[in-house]
């Protein structure tokens, strides 16, 4: 059994203009010690996914459907008190902007000790000792002094180290890191990423790494999901996706990388931009930007326009694309061609 099992998750925001469907039919699993990357353009629903894992989605957001099983326990229906015992203890989070994540009026020590005291019956002095030890592990210089400092006295990189230390305080099983280096200076991004990787490997902590940096994903994670407009459109082993992406959107992302451009030429950007989740196009949400959705006569394929693609297995990856399905089915004639979407999807997971 996987450590974390997310299936068919639907998350919506009840706004005055109607529900915004932020996550649709999102499913994935995470094994103990595994590192999973989630990539996608900003607005794809990555942060919503991160918060939902801890059932932390706040009003007007709500989980409309689906299940989140952690260690065999269902989080979507769990009582707040029990959820509290999992948050920060079994599953902890790292936020994007270290400048905003720590409370400005509480000392670093206070913010670490309160976390320990929330989950363990522990004396303040012992909690302080553990906090100190964790600060050592994230290579904070003169950690003793830091405990009595306030966040504003530390640089962004330092603060993110402290946040990593807080995430590790209770030796969690999973860390969900939502773009942990995006807000940092380029020079320290690599340092922080390396630190996170080192600590996860050393303590056998599973990591869900949310980022839009494909380079980082390929270095750190073993498997990855690609999200587009609230849906997972491709998932599989990171190496396989990076080397040979199937979904036109993933291909576009990889081709848009600076190192894929011919020197002196424009970057190969995907034309257009991701639709807002409030009005995603029908069918495949990517079809208006997809060059493969145009058939030989220069017309948009009907299935791309009208039918939401289900996952099809290609190699070790699952891809939600009509064009890929066609290719796969053409090359494996023994494949049952009848469209039994849901069961196929389950099999794909």
């Amino acid at each position: 059994m996987a450590l974390l099992e997310v299936s068919n998750l639907d998350v919506r925001f009840a706004l005055r203009q109607g529900d915004v469907k932020a996550l649709r039919d999102v499913s994935f699993t995470l094994d103990r010690g595994e590192r999973l990357g989630i990539v996608g353009e900003s607005g794809a629903g990555k942060s919503v996914a991160a918060f939902t894992i801890l059932n932390l989605i706040a009003k007007p957001g709500y989980i409309a459907d689906g299940s989140i099983r952690f260690d065999g326990r269902e989080l979507t229906t769990m009582k707040p008190r029990q959820l509290q015992q999992i948050r920060g203890n079994k599953v902890s989070m790292i936020f994007q902007d270290p400048m905003m994540t720590l409370n400005p009026v509480l000392t670093i020590g206070e913010q670490m000790i309160e976390c320990l005291k929330a989950h363990r019956r522990i004396r303040r002095r012992d909690a302080r000792e553990i906090a100190l030890n964790k600060l050592h592990q994230v290579y904070i210089p003169s950690p003793e002094r830091r405990l009595d400092q306030y966040p504003h006295e530390l640089s962004g990189g330092m603060r993110q180290r402290i946040i990593i230390a807080i995430a590790l305080l209770l030796d969690p099983d999973v860390i969900v890191a939502d773009e942990p280096t995006t807000a940092l200076d380029v020079t320290i991004q690599a340092e922080i990423m390396e630190l996170l990787l080192e600590l996860c490997e050393k303590h056998n902590v599973a990591l869900i790494l949310i980022t839009h940096d494909l380079g980082v994903v390929s270095q750190v994670t073993q498997r990855m999901l690609v999200m587009y407009a609230g849906r997972v459109i491709e998932q599989g082993p990171t190496r396989e996706i990076i080397n040979d992406a199937e979904h036109p959107y993933t291909q576009g992302l990889i081709n848009a990388l600076p190192q894929m451009a011919t020197p002196g030429q424009r970057l190969n950007q995907i034309p257009g931009s991701m639709p807002s989740l409030a009005n995603t196009p029908p069918g495949c949400a990517f079809h208006p930007r997809c060059s493969f959705s145009v058939d030989a006569n220069g017309e948009r394929r009907r299935d791309c326009r009208e039918v939401i693609p289900t996952f099809v297995r290609s190699g070790n990856c699952d891809v939600a694309c009509h064009m890929v399905r066609e290719l796969v089915e053409r090359h494996s004639p023994e494949h049952d061609a009848s469209d039994n979407g849901p069961s196929e999807k389950r099999e794909a997971l």
Partner: peptide, 23 residues
């Protein structure tokens, strides 16, 4: 964000309201 982070740390709502937020 710091209130959301406090929630993600599993801090009790009472402490979040009266220690983290009130000050």
């Amino acid at each position: 964000d710091y209130v959301k982070f406090a929630k993600a740390k599993g801090i009790s709502m009472r402490r979040i309201y009266f220690v983290h937020a009130l000050k």
